[in-house]
């Protein structure tokens, strides 16, 4: 078995086993992986050199879709909720993206921010649909015919999330290695040449943008189920900043990076809450700056070692 696969198997086994030893880790790991999906979405765009300061909106859209469907329509099935959240977030992503991916650099970052702030404000103001600033409560979903207790569902959710991580991670890996994935990185290095090869940068980016929105929506749906509550703050711009931070901390070179970044952050958070709760932002702010200075390829780059000449992975 090749080395990366052994590492992957060991990592996933550890994540699956940790909650058996420490029960409250169920929540921590589920949330970490759920946010990892959103960070992966952000990482896809970073490969194209685009930094979104608004992706928390798709996370929120996914979370609110799940909460809304459960509260207002009585749909409680896990699979339907997850699928609906991904679809709604992807459609929103394609709709906004059609306009947003025409922009580059700072303008792309700022416009995503602006759209996300509109979504944030709507989440806080539309009491009838979103519950306003109180948000919406999320009950315990059902799984096909099974109506689980909260604790049993949480365990199911953990393993379902880990399963999704493996499946979507594999698909994401294939995507990055495909012509379309390489075209995405090519937008970053030379958009003019790409157009002269007959490839539309706009469609290449919109595809990636739709996928990234869908991934963030999935993360939002899973987080809503794990937390049991959704809030407008999910869409606030600082959350978007955190997603970018997570992706960069883990590394945007491969699909594993954002998940590693997210799990690392959540685990450190667990420790820090006990020791220095006041200084959490300070710690990750310093960590982020250190990563930018010393580890341009993120934690994943550290694990991967200095073998790469394939390029396209640094910031």
């Amino acid at each position: 078995m090749p080395k990366p696969l052994i590492g992957l198997a060991a990592g996933v086994a550890l994540l699956a086993a940790l909650p058996l030893a420490v029960p409250f880790m169920t929540f921590v790991v589920t949330l970490a992986v759920a946010k990892g999906f959103a960070a992966l979405g952000v990482a896809l765009l970073l490969r194209a050199g685009l930094i979104s300061l608004g992706h928390a909106m798709y996370f929120a859209i996914g979370a609110y879709t799940t909460a809304f469907l459960m509260q207002k329509t009585g749909i409680t099935d896990f699979a339907i909720l997850v699928a609906a959240s991904i679809i709604v977030a992807t459609l929103a992503g394609l709709a906004f993206g059609a306009f947003l991916v025409r922009y580059r650099a700072i303008f792309f970052a700022m416009l995503n921010l602006a759209v996300s702030m509109v979504i944030y404000a709507l989440c806080s103001k539309l009491y009838g649909v979103t519950g306003g600033t109180d948000g919406l409560r999320v009950g315990v979903p059902t799984v096909f015919a099974w109506v689980p207790e909260k604790a049993a569902f949480d365990t199911f959710l953990l393993y379902a999330t880990l399963g999704l991580m493996l499946v979507l991670g594999w698909l994401g890996h294939r995507y990055l290695k495909s012509p379309l994935g390489h075209a995405l990185a090519a937008v970053h290095t030379n958009e003019v040449r790409l157009e002269y090869l007959g490839v539309s940068a706009w469609s290449t980016l919109l595809t990636a943008y739709g996928i990234s929105a869908g991934l963030a929506g999935l993360g939002g749906a899973l987080s809503a189920m794990a937390i049991g509550h959704v809030l407008p703050e999910f869409a606030f711009w600082t959350e978007s900043g955190h997603l970018v931070l997570t992706a960069v901390l883990g590394g945007v070179g491969g699909v594993a990076g954002p998940f590693i970044g997210s799990i690392f952050l959540e685990l450190v958070h667990v420790v820090a809450v006990g020791v220095a709760a006041e200084a959490w932002n300070l710690i990750i702010g310093v960590a982020l700056i250190c990563v930018i200075f010393f580890l341009p390829r993120g934690l994943f780059g550290l694990i991967e070692g200095r073998r790469g000449k394939t390029g396209g992975t640094d910031l």
Binding site: A183, A186, V199
Partner: peptide, 26 residues
């Protein structure tokens, strides 16, 4: 005008893929 983060052969394969149809995601 090159894709400077890709190797030369990757540059070429991308050009060839563009000719055959870039819409291959997997």
């Amino acid at each position: 005008q090159l894709f400077t983060d890709h190797s030369l052969i990757d540059n070429l394969m991308l050009s060839i893929a563009a000719r055959h149809g870039i819409w291959q995601a997997l």
